[in-house]
Simulated scan of single mutants.
Amino acid sequence: MAEQRLATVRLVEESEATGAVAAIFADIKATKKLDFIPHFWRVLATNPTQLELVWTRLKAIMHPEAEGRTGRLDPLTREIIALAVSATNGCAYCINSHTAAVRKLGLDVEALGEVMAVVALFNGTNAIANGYQIEPDVFPPLD
């Protein structure tokens, strides 16, 4: 029987992590309040530079509070946006990860349905506007 593959590369086990990778793994667990390192980060750990770049950017944008900053968007709003983009992009891994996050932040199943309805609505209306090549006529303020 073939072994189950989790990715196209062998994931770095947390017990194998040393140096910068071990430090980033510890930061991920502390920042995200997890007791394990998700597959995504274990795959990125095969290239420590990429792991550091992606984690640093994600932490700054998705977890500004962990860096002593106050984001203008609350954590639930940031995760809803991440979920909406993930659904639009069709990333099963990301959909599951961000659905878990929004549920952990208090979004109930009914509200999750509303999020998916908004995603579906605007994927459709965006396709219509693109298909007809409609010129914009409503603009945001420039301030």
Rank of each mutant, 00 (worst) to 15 (best):
K59W: 00
I128P: 03
F40G: 05
T125D: 04
T99A: 12
L83T: 01
W55T: 01
D137H: 12
A26M: 01
Y93Q: 10
M1I: 03
L53M: 14
V85Y: 02
E3L: 10
I128H: 09
L44H: 05
G19K: 05
A84T: 03
T70A: 10
S86Y: 06
G113W: 03
A30L: 00
F139D: 03
V102H: 07
V12E: 03
Q133I: 02
A66I: 02
V109M: 08
E67N: 15
A120S: 14
A101P: 03
A60D: 08
A26P: 00
E114Y: 09
E3M: 12
R69P: 05
F122N: 12
V109H: 13
E3C: 05
T56P: 03
V115Y: 02
P140D: 14
A17L: 07
M116T: 02
Q133R: 15
D35E: 08
I128D: 05
Y93E: 14
N96D: 15
A2P: 09
V102Y: 09
A66H: 10
A45N: 12
V12G: 04
G106V: 00
K32T: 01
P75S: 13
G68P: 03
T56C: 06
A45G: 11
V118K: 12
E67G: 15
I95M: 14
M62F: 07
A127D: 06
L142V: 04
R10C: 07
M116C: 05
N130E: 08
P48M: 08
L107M: 14
E79S: 11
E79T: 01
K33F: 00
M1R: 15
L83F: 13
G106A: 03
K29A: 00
R5P: 04
E79Q: 10
L58R: 14
T125C: 03
I81N: 15
E110T: 11
D74F: 01
I128Y: 12
G124A: 05
V138I: 12
D74I: 02
T99S: 13
V102M: 02
E114K: 11
I134F: 05
P75Y: 02
V85I: 09
P75C: 07
E14P: 01
L105P: 01
A23V: 01
A30Q: 00
E110L: 11
Q4H: 06
V102I: 01
E16A: 13
